[in-house]
Design a protein around this nucleic acid. Sequence first.
DNA 1: TTACATAGTGTTATATTATAACATTTAAAT
DNA 2: ATTTAAATGTTATAATATAACACTATGTAA
Lengths: 129, 129
Amino acid sequence: MHTLSKNQQIIFDIIDKSREPMKAYSILFNVQKKGIKAPLQVYRALDKLVEIGKIHKIESRNAFIACQNSSCQVSKATAFSICESCEKVTEINNSSLSKYLSNFKDKAGMKYSKYNLEFFGLCKKCITK
Amino acid sequence: MHTLSKNQQIIFDIIDKSREPMKAYSILFNVQKKGIKAPLQVYRALDKLVEIGKIHKIESRNAFIACQNSSCQVSKATAFSICESCEKVTEINNSSLSKYLSNFKDKAGMKYSKYNLEFFGLCKKCITK
DNA sequence: TTACATAGTGTTATATTATAACATTTAAAT
DNA sequence: ATTTAAATGTTATAATATAACACTATGTAA
Ligand SMILES: [Zn+2]
Ligand SMILES: [Zn+2]
Ligand SMILES: [Zn+2]
Ligand SMILES: [Zn+2]
């Protein structure tokens, strides 16, 4: 098991506490009182946390959320639902979906080791507005 | 059918001719001889071209490729394979996959109008190296 | 323990990606 | 011809991310 370094722990904690995806410079702003002063300190921790699967990057939003599953540390297979109105992001944990995608083979013969899927739409709250 | 404006056409042409995904500032550099001088002129054309489905953004790479299918203008459903070694990107056109994903329903009850999927791995060329 | 290797930190500067704001022009619709 | 919407040109600036270098902590193995 991985034990996080000081900066990694600080930055993981703030992302984990947040209900929304956090952007790097918003994280930076929030951890400056803890002595983390420079973007690079944030990005280095983010890189590591992504690498070990504790957080994920929402590519379409340049933002980071804590992993809400248990298996992402090994699988590198991620799926999210994103509300285009309120920007709520949820990690999808669906074994049918992950099986389907993990077994998917391109006709080009490429074998995939990793995927990222982002669904967009309106969440329950926003659809009724 | 959409008829492209002058800048949109110039920028679409250069992306369409390219064998690789192109980045915005690389596009800018390449079209400066045609009178397009500022980033905003490029980004505005890119936005429109993405909106009408002539090009797609590869989110994990901040780069743009011409659509290689015919249906993306309506579907807003995109899937790509990305080689992590040579960075070759191919648009996946697979009806089983698109059916599966278009019909996918989250247990959260969210109805999706759009998705983007990026697979990562090694292409045929790179896997033998 | 000491040497070595690996990972993490701190700092400054800079590169890359993207948008705000405003004035003007072109094209399309009534 | 008048109005509206879309596109353009321009300057400035915001937001996101990395390069380079010096240093420190931690783990491993002789
Ligand atoms: Zn996860
Ligand atoms: Zn919502
Ligand atoms: Zn397409
Ligand atoms: Zn390759």
